[in-house]
Structures are given as structure tokens and as C-alpha cells.
């Protein structure tokens, strides 16, 4: 199914919950097509995309979290084995209090993907079964992938920066 048709089907089913969708760029035909939905509808839309035989997005490739300074975007990159297609479903979150429902029940792999985003971007996932930091230590301060992140000067009395030995030359 063409990406336009997928968006049309989503609009038909979810109406206003579906936001702007990417237009094809003739100079760059292989870009990743994405469509925005409202954050509170993400589980319903994902369930639809996963279960509907005409879509059958059975594989969640990854969830990309990006800090756009005024908001945080999550992109659910998903692949359909049957229809051989990759699309991105996107949501916009409030940067000061980012929170969204988990999609763990639809794809089990969301568990770790969401833990990573919680760890690196500070997004809270409601209903997540085990929301802990994944890559950084449990007592780390801050979320490194945020654009305004300042690394703490030391961690358990180990300095996190080092003088550049070439600095004096």
C-alpha cells in the first residue's frame, strides 16, 4: 500500500487525531515517510497499524527520540514483512513534561526502546512494566541526548573531563 493510502486510511479511521504527513520529494525519492498523530492516540494507532492485514506492521525497527528544543518528537519506525514497506509514525511531546503511553503490549521490543528513550531523553512512559535507565548508570543525573544537556563535572568523585595534553601547545 502506498504511503498516501496509509495516511488516508488513518484519517478515515482516526479523523482529527492524525496530523500532518510528509509529502513525497521528487528529488529525494527514498526519504523515510512519516505521519504525525496525537500523542494520546498512539496505542490505538499502533494497534491498528499492527493488526490491520492491509498494513501488518509487525516489526518495530526502532523508536527514535529527538529533542527539537521546543518539543520532543518520537518516531516509531516500523516495517511490514508482508508489504515490504517502512514508515514512521511520529508524535510531538511537551518538552517540560514529556509523557506518553507505552506500546509494549503491541511490540515487546518497545520495552527496551522506551527504556533507552527514558534514559537518554527523559520521556516518561505510562504503563511501562520496568521503566529504569538502560545505558547510563542508575544514579546518573540528566538526559544526555537533550540538546541543552550539561554533563556533571564528576561521577562518584571521578572527573568526567580531562585536561587536553595538547592544549598548551
Amino acid at each position: 500500500m502506498h504511503f498516501d493510502e496509509i495516511v488516508a486510511r488513518l484519517r478515515e479511521r482516526f479523523g482529527d487525531l492524525v496530523g500532518e504527513a510528509d509529502e513525497p520529494d521528487p528529488a529525494r525519492p527514498s526519504l523515510l515517510p512519516g505521519v504525525f498523530v496525537r500523542a494520546d492516540s498512539v496505542t490505538d494507532v499502533c494497534r491498528f497499524l499492527h493488526d490491520e492485514p492491509a498494513m501488518a506492521f509487525e516489526h518495530l525497527s526502532c523508536i527514535t527520540g529527538t529533542d527539537f528544543k521546543d518539543s520532543i518528537h518520537l518516531a516509531y519506525v516500523m516495517t511490514s514483512y508482508v508489504h515490504r514497506q517502512v514508515i514512521a509514525l511520529k508524535v510531538k511531546l511537551d518538552r517540560d513534561d514529556p509523557s506518553i503511553r507505552t506500546v509494549e503490549e503491541i511490540w515487546a521490543t518497545a520495552n527496551w526502546n522506551e527504556r533507552e528513550i527514558y534514559d537518554l531523553l527523559g520521556v516518561y512512559f505510562e504503563g511501562h512494566s520496568d521503566l529504569r535507565r538502560l545505558l547510563m548508570p542508575d544514579d546518573w543525573v540528566g538526559h544526555p541526548l537533550r540538546k541543552d544537556y550539561q554533563e556533571q563535572p564528576d561521577y562518584h568523585e571521578i572527573p568526567t573531563t580531562r585536561e587536553n595534553p595538547l592544549g598548551k601547545y
Partner: peptide, 22 residues
Amino acid sequence: PAKGEAYGAVESARGELGYHVI
């Protein structure tokens, strides 16, 4: 590159290795 997003995935020895570049 102009504004946009691309996803490049290859079949690595360990399976899909994808880069989502914005």
C-alpha cells in the same frame, strides 16, 4: 542535505542495522 529524514538499513551479519538520520 536539505531538511528531511532518511532511514538506511542493511542486512548486517547480525541482521537489520539501520541508521535513522535527521
